[in-house]
Design a protein around this nucleic acid. Structure first.
Lengths: 122, 122
DNA sequence: CTTCTATCTTGACGTTCATCGATTCAAGGC
DNA sequence: GCCTTGAATCGATGAACGTCAAGATAGAAG
């Protein structure tokens, strides 16, 4: 069924996306479209050592533990992070391939006109 | 008041985002978190000449014209596109600075471990 | 000035989402 | 076995979102 962003690398800014591609990419962007999830991802990605325990994430927010757990689940379903239980604690880490793909989706082909040229020329 | 993504260039994957930064960046990602808006943006960005008339966008979707207009408004409020009325028609174009900034937000610092190393090492 | 076409705005409706409290599950330590 | 602690799931609730039909607005052409 639906295409996965892991398989395709649509060039968003070069050619029109078809519906399947748009659906797959939108799923990941939607996961990033919440400030709590962005901060969670940022805390996980920037952690030296590459992984973070949930118990280190929760106290940084003014939210209940189930809510944090919910957001982590959405990030995981979007393929942005993964986790593993080790004893009593659960550790999360970034899947850099996912953010790399997204960055590529947003990158204009080399040789494109410099930023804002189109607007300035008007 | 709230920070704008135009002013800051937070490195999402390098250091933890603060709440203001997260709010600003999330606003843009949320705009991209819908397949219709992604396809609209893609159609606008990939158009040779740099601009598209609404009348060229609407027939590509199985949606009412007001719905398309609504999505275009959200993309514009996110700072991703801009528009101008010229006679009877309204033309939209990409603001490349916005997508450039987003791509940079998602880019890992040079020298970071290759994609998925963290997971594979486990 | 009236009419026609292209687009935007408004108001309403059903769906999805973020959040919480309560509960459940998993793993250790007693 | 039975607590204790960390984390996930469940069920409910209010807010935000996507969509449409109807109406409003802007410009061009008669």
């Amino acid at each position: 069924m639906g295409q996965d962003i892991a398989e395709c690398c649509p060039a968003l800014l070069t050619a029109p996306l078809d519906e399947e591609q748009a659906e797959a990419v939108a799923k990941v962007f939607k996961a990033l479209g919440d400030p709590v999830r962005l901060r969670l991802l940022s805390m996980i990605a920037s952690r030296s050592g590459g992984e973070v325990c949930v118990c280190d994430l929760t106290p940084a927010f003014d939210l209940s533990q189930p809510t944090i757990s919910h957001h982590l689940k959405l990030l995981r379903q979007a393929g942005l992070i993964d986790c593993e239980r080790r004893g009593t604690w659960v550790y999360y880490w970034l899947l850099p391939a996912a953010t790399d793909r997204l960055a590529r989706v947003l990158t204009r082909p080399a040789g494109a006109p410099p930023a804002d040229t189109a607007a300035a020329a008007r």
